[in-house]
Simulated scan of single mutants.
Amino acid sequence: MFSESCPELNCQNFPTPVIGGFASYNLSVGGASTADINFTIYVTGSWQPGLAYDTICNAVNLGTLSANGSIGNNALSNYGNFCATNTGEPQPWGDNNDQGVWFKFTTSTSTTNIISIDAKSDPQPIGDSLDLQLALYQSSNGSCTGSLTHIQESWDGSGTLNDEAINSICLTANTTYFLLVDGQSTSTTSGIQGYFGIQINDNTIDNSVNITGDTLTANASGYSYQWIDCNNSNSPITGETNQSFTISTTGSYAVEISNGSCFTTSNCENMVTLSQDSFSTDEMIHLFPNPTSRNISIRLNHSVPEITARIFSITGQLIRTIKKNNVSQLNIDIKGNNGLYFVEVKTQTTKKTFKLIKKN
Rank of each mutant, 00 (worst) to 15 (best):
I307T: 00
I307M: 08
I247F: 07
R310N: 11
I296M: 09
N259S: 05
S280L: 07
T246G: 03
N267P: 00
N259H: 04
F312A: 07
V327F: 04
T321R: 13
S261A: 13
S275A: 10
P289H: 07
R310E: 12
T241L: 07
S244Q: 15
E240G: 06
I257G: 07
L274S: 02
S297P: 05
F263Q: 08
D277C: 05
N270S: 15
I322W: 08
I296T: 02
Q329R: 04
R299S: 12
G251L: 13
G316F: 02
I298F: 14
Y253A: 03
F279K: 11
S275T: 08
S258N: 08
I257K: 06
H286M: 08
M284H: 11
H286A: 07
V255N: 07
T315G: 04
F263V: 00
Q243F: 01
I296E: 03
H302V: 00
S280H: 11
N270L: 05
L300F: 08
Q243W: 01
V327S: 04
P289W: 05
S297W: 06
Q243I: 08
L330V: 06
T249L: 14
N295S: 15
V255D: 12
M271Y: 01
G260K: 06
N301R: 06
S244F: 14
N270T: 10
T265Q: 13
S278Q: 10
I319D: 04
F288P: 03
N267Y: 02
P289T: 10
F245P: 00
I307R: 09
T308P: 05
Q276P: 00
E283Y: 13
N301A: 10
I307F: 08
T321I: 14
Y253W: 02
T292Y: 10
S293C: 08
I319K: 12
S248L: 12
K323R: 15
S278N: 14
